[in-house]
Design a binder for these strands. Structure first.
Length: 415
RNA sequence: CGGGAUGUAGUAUACCGGUAGUACGUCUGUUUUGGGAACAGAUAGACUGGGUUCGAUUCCCAGCAUCCCGACCA
């Protein structure tokens, strides 16, 4: 993509109404636009990142047998009344609205009820189980206080998966598989080294659940980590019983602030019973389906990456999620340089290297460098009079100080 | 939801009960071009509604919006 055609622009000034690093850098870089408190639009560069993360999650979910669907945001209140989750006392984040005829509707904050309802049409026999269904969907939650940029919003993108098994044994097998898939996701988005599976409260669903927490000082949660075993516990369930069941000792635990980047739950019959999602087993007995749920906030994950992987100059995108792999900079405007930069741009594109080409004119080198640092593509490639004298292009990684001049052929070998 | 704060050009800010200033941006022109260039000119602003006042962007009230701390986070 030619940067001269990109409609977004970078900003030097920090927006006065953003304090969190993710919102500051993403806004300055033109990745996102704040519509209102806790509600953000994704602009071309930001959407590319979001889609890359989504795709990584999609690949990992497919790898463990997930089947992708897309459910509706509009929700029928009758369905939620059956599980006693319609009233504002029970679920206080509902956005509610009405049809013209006064029928009450909700904007989906999660999708247990509708997905269970869908599966009633298709699950009859033990032969139909297990089944793993997921989607990427915009969730609406009327948070009392949105904060921290895209880490806690009122409208956000989430991957939610639901598992349908015949019994707890079959469920546990998948539950463990999902942990591995989740950790694969965090590794691929560059957070693997600081993300842990954390034993946590199950909220109103179950006694316990597992969270995936990325350690960072801006996190909202407190976790206790045993660094020898890698086993961690959320503060909310830190007690002797839990510690004993996990086989860890209180004195070995280190406290960390962390951001919750995923959460998996065992539901059992919590939804299948009230909604009558049953199946017949081998003996002809009718039993409720054993369910679980698995969530990852895609936009929150993007914000977490920015919080953790940035420096004082800007973002440092990991390769798999960067909007483009290469930021190609044209420095100087004489015809030779322009022609050469265009050629390099074409060559990279022909070789399927995703490249943002800073072909803008009338700008100083310093301004282009500053933009490249802010936008944070993994590789910066410079075409200039200087690089041409040395018969090559200058390539520098975003997370390294020094670059080197290489030929275009050598450059292509890097990708 | 409890507490606190703030609303001034596109952005960031200043001053003021009496003609609203600066920087960045944007536009025009000239010169520049390896770490956010220089000069000249231009562009554009007081959240909304009420009140006090000869006069309100400034003071008061209400609404709306935004941020921060706490609570909440199924």
């Amino acid at each position: 993509m030619r940067q001269s055609k990109l409609f977004t622009k970078t900003r030097k000034e920090v927006p006065a109404d953003e304090v969190s690093k993710n919102a500051e850098l993403l806004t300055r870089g033109g990745f996102i636009h704040k519509e209102m408190a806790g509600v953000y639009s994704f602009l071309p560069l930001g959407l590319r990142v979001l889609k890359k993360i989504e795709n990584i999650v999609r690949e990992e979910m497919n790898a463990i047998g997930g089947q992708e669907i897309s459910m509706t945001a509009l929700q029928d209140s009758e369905l939620w009344k059956k599980t006693d989750r319609w009233s504002d006392e029970k679920v206080d984040v509902w956005f509610k609205t009405k049809l013209k005829n006064d029928t009450e509707l909700g904007l989906g904050c999660t999708h247990e009820e509708p997905v269970t309802n869908i599966m009633k049409n298709f699950i009859n026999s033990y032969r139909d189980l297990p089944s793993y269904i997921y989607q990427f969907q915009t969730k609406f939650r009327n948070e009392l206080r949105a904060k921290a940029g895209i880490l806690r919003g009122r409208e956000f993108l989430m991957k939610d998966m639901y598992s349908f098994c015949k019994d707890e044994i079959e469920h546990n097998e998948f539950y463990e598989k999902s942990k591995v898939a989740y950790m694969n996701v965090y590794k691929r988005v560059g957070l693997g080294h600081i993300t842990y599976v954390v034993f946590a409260s199950g909220g109103m669903f179950s006694k316990y659940s597992h969270e995936f927490q990325t350690i960072t000082s801006v996190g909202e949660d407190l976790i206790y980590l045993d660094e020898n075993t890698g086993i961690a516990v959320n503060k909310e369930v830190l007690n002797d019983e839990v510690l004993a069941s996990l086989g860890i000792k209180r004195e070995n635990l280190v406290e960390h602030k962390a951001i919750e980047v995923g959460n998996i739950f065992t539901y059992g019959k919590r939804y299948s019973e009230p909604l009558n999602l049953n199946f017949n087993n081998e003996k002809g007995e009718t039993l409720p389906v054993f369910m679980g749920a698995y969530g990852i906030g895609i936009s929150r994950l993007m914000g977490t990456i920015v919080e953790v992987l940035s420096d004082d100059k800007g973002i440092i995108w990991p390769e798999e999620v960067a909007p483009f792999k290469v930021h190609l900079l044209m420095l100087g405007e004489d015809e030779e340089v322009k022609k050469r930069a265009d050629e390099v741009y074409e060559i990279l594109q022909k070789n399927k290297v995703e490249v943002l080409f800073d072909d803008r004119t009338g700008m100083s080198a310093g301004e282009k460098f500053a933009d490249a640092d802010l936008l944070g593509m993994p590789y910066r490639v410079v075409v200039s009079g200087r690089s041409m004298k040395e018969n090559g292009v200058e390539v520098k990684k975003r997370n390294e100080e020094k670059g080197q001049v290489v030929s275009v052929d050598e450059l292509l070998k890097l990708f």
